[in-house]
Design a protein around this nucleic acid. Structure first.
Lengths: 118, 118, 118, 118
DNA sequence: GTGGTCTAGACCACG
DNA sequence: GTGGTCTAGACCACA
């Protein structure tokens, strides 16, 4: 499933996770486009797209000539975006339709998810 | 989420759901490409693609000049394909990572899913 | 391979084999269109096409109101048609290209064919 | 015989032959759909179909935005597919029935095939 | 009537 | 630049 998603979104997700986990603190600088591209083994343009995407969402912001920085309210932004996508963007309904299609019960889902977390 | 998926796959999913639900019985005929295209308001070629896809998966088969028919073991096939995609195709892990990212607990997921089903 | 060939040609082949084997003697009547259709579990039009095809090749001929009959020189006709198709119709080259593609040697082919005949 | 096969399959065969022959090495890139379409003098969509077909068979794979690449085990895949089609798909039996129908002996087949190869 | 193939051209997301 | 999808329309073989 991940491999079918656009690479730039996968990278954006990683950045967001790092922000939420505290690896990338608020107001701190995120890796440069070239750094991240080299590290992720992808084209520079792909990372550019990632950062543009995150900037549009207010997760990071740009200081001309200095690079991109984590927004002070990035964690809240990310949480809000993800919840909105999940509950209002149809993600939840799609996921539940998949659960239903393979015949999973709520109890089974809960158990599988517990295992995943644990 | 659904709306971003290719139409031909959405149609394939609908056909599969109809098969699982018993609306399209085993060995029975599925709508002709032209019928389904008209009904679904899409181009004939899109339905052709759907049926090619389902045939490759062994869900339907072709009788020359007569049309497509539901495979006798279609229900099992569909179940197998969907479970494999879910458990081995990384779908489950991706979904659970989303749950985790927005801070859902197993209990919360179970409750939401119950509501969805009910 | 057989199942991908047009049904009317498969039936034509069967008729030809019956003629060569002597089951359908020269000047004898071949089954009526309806008989053969019922027996072969196919549409009447398919058998019509078979007979038209065989008639064009001079293997059978039509007596109005009486049905189709095996031509007196049907065996020779069939032999000639088959050889021509094989040697000049590109059938041989295609077959040999398949042999080559899966790495069969002449000796291996000979052995497999002997087994098939035996 | 070849000329009656769909173009997209003929092109697929050519690609496979190039892979087996080493002209298209494992992990290497295959021509872009546009390149191959121009070179083969066919519509782009026809090549798209060829590549979809080869991808389903695991012969090539896609890297997003970069193009299609030869699978690392492509040669084995191709060999397996071709052998399966030949031995289990009824291709062999059909071919041998043709040999028999025109009265070829194993020795004759071997000789003709040797000539073809040589 | 059925599906199968092919073309032409468009628009899009992605890297 | 890459492929992915979709449309429109054509022609064909087959049952």
């Amino acid at each position: 499933m991940q491999e079918n998603r656009p690479i730039y979104l996968q990278i954006a997700d990683r950045i967001c996770n790092d922000i939420v986990a505290g690896n990338l603190p608020a107001e701190g600088r995120v890796p440069s486009v070239r750094e991240l591209a080299a590290e992720s083994q992808v084209n520079v343009n792909t990372v550019v797209r990632t950062y543009e995407h995150l900037e549009r969402d207010g997760v990071i912001f740009n200081r001309r000539g200095l690079g991109y920085f984590v927004a002070s309210d990035a964690v809240e932004r990310i949480s809000e975006i993800r919840r909105k996508l999940f509950f209002e963007g149809g993600e939840m309904d799609f996921i539940f339709s998949r659960f239903k299609a393979i015949g999973l019960t709520p109890a089974a889902v809960s158990e599988l998810y517990s295992k995943y977390l644990g």
